[in-house]
Design a binder for these strands. Structure first.
Lengths: 229, 229
DNA sequence: CGACCCTTTGATTGCTGTCAATTATCGTGG
DNA sequence: CCACGATAATTGACAGCAATCAAAGGGTCG
C-alpha cells in the first residue's frame, strides 16, 4: 500500500482526478517500486500484468527487430503513465534509463477501477491523445527529416519536456540529458556515429556547447529552431 | 440529423456503446457529409471545430514541413474516428484519399457528450490506445527498416486492415490499394522512385503480382513476412 | 486521338551507415 | 590519490543504399 498523500506526482499524475476516498482505494492497489537504470520492467510481446505511474526517473519504450536493431518509441517522465490498459501483451519493452521510482498496479484491478471512474478515464484518454500526437510528430521526424534536423528537433523537444518538470534552470537553455549517445541514436533512427557527428558540428558552429557527456547548452535557440525544419 | 439506425458502421464505430436513447441524442448532433477524393477536411495547425466517424472511404492524416515534405502519420478506415477531442488545434491535416462519407460532430458538443458517457469514452480510449500502438509500430518501421522491409511490412499491414472491412476476398491475398505510389512513399518515408523499384523487384522475384496500378496479389506470404524484418 | 498524370526505369550523387581506431570519461581497487 | 580497466564517445576512411535528376512508358479522360 502506498501513501498517496505524500506522493510527489499526486497533482500531476492521473490520480489528480480522484478525491480522498477514491485515492484511498487506488492507493491500496498500488505499491511503490524502485527500478535501477538499465532494468527492464516490461518485455516486448510478453504478457503485461501491470500498469504504473512514474514517480521519479526516466524510462524508455522500445521496439526491437529480430536482428537487434532498436527503435525507442516513447520516453516516459515523472507523472507519466506506463502500460497498456485493456490489452494483455505489451507491444514494447519498458526499460529504465535512469534509476527510477514507479507506482505499480495490477492491470486487471486498475482496468476495473478505471472502468467505473469517468474522471480517471478521461485523464487517461487525454494523456493517450497527447502521447499519440507526440508519436505522430516523431513519425514525421523519423520518416522525413535529415540527421541534423533530427538532432535539432530532438534537443528542442527534450529541453521543452524537461523544463516541464523543474529539471532545467536558466530558461531551459542548459539541461542534462537523461540518456547517452546510443539512446539518442535509437530515438532518432540514426547510428551513434552520425548522432555524434551532428552534435560535434553544431558545437563547432557555436549553436550549442557540450560541457560534459550529458550536459547540453543551447546558445542559439533561433538557429536551432531553423535547423529543426 | 442522422439516422443512426441505418448506419453502416453502427456496430463497429464508437457509437456501438450507446443505447437507443443515447444514440438519438448523439444522432441529432451529427450530420453526414460526403468528401471527394483529395479534399481536405481538417488542416494541420488550424482550429479543428469538428470530430467525425468515417462511414465509407479512406482518409489520411498527414504532417508537412515548411519546404513541402509530407509524412502520412495515420490512415483512417470506415468505422474509425477522426479528430482530436479535448484539443483545439488539429496537429495534422485530414484528407480523403478516396471519395468518403463521414458523420461529423461539433467538437465541443461531442466533448461534452463524451464527458458524461463512460462507455463511449472507454471505446474512444481503446481506439486511441490501439492507434498509439500502430503509430509506435510504424515508428520502428520509419526509423530502423530498409526500403524493402518497409514495403513488405506495409503490404502485410494493409492487407490485414483491409480484410477487417470486407474489402478483400480470396483470403486477403489479393486486394486493392486505396492510394497511389506517391502516397505509399509518404507513408513509408521513402521517395516514389524507391517505392516503385522495391515493388518491381518483388514482382520479378515472384513474391507478388501487380495486375493493375492499384491491385496487389501476394503470392508468397511467408517470403513477404521474412522480408518484413 | 491527344493531353495529362501517374508510374516506371536509368544514371548519378550524396548522405548516412559500416568498419576501424583513437580518445575521453567513469568506476574500481590498490 | 593515483593507476588501471572498462565503457562511452569521438573521429576517420570508405561503402552502399536511397535520394535526386532526368526521361520514357502506360493509362485515363476529355
Amino acid at each position: 500500500m502506498s501513501d498517496c498523500s505524500t506522493c510527489i506526482v499526486r497533482n500531476r499524475a492521473i490520480c489528480a482526478s480522484l478525491n480522498a476516498e477514491e485515492l484511498a482505494i487506488l492507493g491500496k492497489m498500488g505499491r511503490r517500486q524502485r527500478v535501477k537504470a538499465g532494468q527492464t520492467l516490461l518485455w516486448e510481446g510478453d504478457d503485461a500484468p501491470v500498469v504504473a505511474n512514474v514517480l521519479a526517473g526516466v524510462l524508455k519504450l522500445a521496439v526491437s527487430t529480430a536482428d537487434g536493431r532498436e527503435q525507442i518509441v516513447g520516453i516516459v517522465f515523472p507523472s507519466d503513465f506506463i502500460g497498456r490498459p485493456f490489452g494483455k501483451e505489451s507491444p514494447y519493452s519498458v526499460t529504465a534509463m535512469t534509476d527510477a521510482d514507479v507506482c505499480i498496479f495490477n492491470r486487471n484491478s486498475f482496468d476495473a477501477f478505471a472502468g467505473t471512474h469517468l474522471d480517471l478515464q478521461q485523464k487517461l484518454l487525454r494523456r493517450t491523445l497527447d502521447e499519440l500526437d507526440r508519436a505522430r510528430h516523431r513519425m514525421m521526424l523519423l520518416g522525413r527529416k535529415t540527421a541534423s534536423e533530427k538532432v535539432a528537433s530532438f534537443l528542442l523537444e527534450i529541453s521543452e519536456r524537461l523544463s516541464g518538470y523543474g529539471c532545467a534552470p536558466e530558461r531551459h537553455g542548459r539541461f542534462e540529458l537523461p540518456f547517452g549517445r546510443q539512446q539518442i541514436a535509437d530515438i532518432l533512427g540514426l547510428t551513434i556515429e552520425t548522432t555524434c557527428r551532428q552534435l560535434t558540428r553544431m558545437r563547432s558552429d557555436g549553436v550549442l556547447d557540450l560541457p560534459s557527456r550529458r550536459e547540453v547548452v543551447i546558445n542559439d535557440r533561433a538557429a536551432m529552431e531553423a535547423m529543426a525544419g
